[in-house]
Nucleic acid binder design. Structure first.
Lengths: 251, 251
DNA sequence: ATAACCCCTTACGTTGCGTCAGGGTCAAGT
DNA sequence: ACTTGACCCTGACGCAACGTAAGGGGTTAT
């Protein structure tokens, strides 16, 4: 073969390594006609200085977040208002940035909400007292309108203050401690009674039978079990038993 | 047909409208098994309350930027650490946000650079004196290493101060004014001589012939023409002629 | 000659849907 | 009974910017 490749010429992988991009990327830029190198007789891509420089520009604009299509216009069209493109691009990047900022804020809010009750999930806590199946009623209200967000919300609102959450938390922690005494112990039964009154005070009206049913849910649904057991292994089972005992005594 | 669809049940478009998403999206969520509704005998999708609630959760996490795959895990796996997922997600969103921030900074830098010489493009001004084809040598140096950024940079560096840019600017503005006197006028020829010395002082060595060649480039390449003509319509053509005249006189 | 690297093209996979195309279903009006 | 018109369904291709094989050839040093 003759010396087809002269000093400054460069093959695909060399260029890729030099530029810190993949070979595939260069192939792609070739196929879309953005950076079309010369070819050797055996079909190898030969990049010359001009191509190298073009690639620099392409990569520069790529780092500014331009789409390849826009970049194509920028580097290949002589009459192209780059300044305007830069300003447009700035706006778009600004929007995207703000979008992620909003996401971050929302995530923070959600994390906060969830931490509210000492690592117990709000959603499942709420489900645990069966007054709202929707953990994100704020979101829901925006999205679904008031119609779809039923009256359970009024009860939910009352959970808006920290005191109540702390009380809730304390209640479960106490119960977790007491569970070792057994479900029929006086201490446990007193605490369970307190829990019953707590629910009735803050979350609607429960009959003793409904209360027992709630206890059953705590073991029937894994999600409740899991969340309740965070306060202590086996708490859910204990509560179910204790609540059943308590409900029986009320008759 | 029997009453297959009861009060609370909902068809695809109704749900889509309610949720502010497209029908296609619901189809898609169905095919990937994330939100699989029931079916009527004729194959229609029937969404019940549970599906509606599931969709709410899905959309909520979607707004937090989670991928559908992650959302699937979150809403369908009972043993899934949502808190950890939230923190991970927060980090990812933070990274993306910062990426866009960096892009914005770079765009601003670039805009600044380009505005540097009174609305004349740096890159093309530089190309105009033929000492750097790469407008973004800073970027290039990071990307390509010093080897690929040739000695043209040393000359470029000298342009780093504002004085020079202002001089350059003033030069072209004067020439734009003088162009009405014609390329052979004494005023014009004097200014052109000044421009020649300016180039030789600051940008390397030009012979009168090279100088004439430069003038030809000003009309041969649209990009130069365009940028030069910003100082005044027809300035490029005028300079080409004036530079040719001046070069001839030097022999 | 043979390994060790390079090169090429073809083509499918990715994410989250948008957008037809071609063909049923359903309730209402004539 | 029939025709609208508005809904429903299932493919199937398209998008951005490549990643990732798969299958086969080129070049070079040993």
């Amino acid at each position: 073969m003759k010396q087809e490749r002269r000093g400054a010429d460069i093959l695909t992988k060399e260029l890729a390594d030099l530029a810190g991009i993949s070979v595939r990327t260069l192939h792609y830029y070739d196929t879309i006609g953005m950076l079309v190198p010369e070819r050797s007789s055996s079909g190898y891509r030969i990049y010359k200085d001009e191509h190298v420089q073009l690639l620099q520009q392409i990569l520069f604009f790529r780092e500014l977040g331009f789409s390849l299509e826009d970049i194509n216009d920028i580097v290949h069209s002589d009459s192209f208002d780059v300044t305007e493109a830069l300003h447009t691009q700035r706006q778009m990047m600004e929007q995207k940035k703000q979008r992620f900022e909003r996401m971050i804020e929302k995530i923070d809010e959600t994390i906060d909400d969830r931490r509210g009750a000492g690592n117990m999930m709000n959603e499942d806590k709420f489900r645990g007292v069966d007054f709202s199946k929707n953990p994100y009623e704020q979101e829901a209200r925006e999205k679904w309108g008031d119609r779809a967000v039923d009256d359970a919300n009024e009860k939910m609102r009352r959970f808006d203050n920290k005191e109540l959450e702390e009380k809730w938390d304390a209640m479960f922690q106490d119960l977790a401690t007491l569970r070792h005494n057994g479900p029929e112990s006086t201490d446990a039964q007193e605490k369970i009674g307190e829990f019953y009154r707590f629910l009735n005070d803050h979350f609607g009206t429960y009959s003793p039978d409904m209360f027992r049913g709630l206890g059953e849910m705590y073991v029937a649904d894994e999600r409740f079990t899991e969340n309740i057991d965070r306060y202590g292994q086996g708490l859910a089972v204990f509560m179910n038993e204790a609540m059943a005992v308590w409900a029986k005594k009320q008759k």
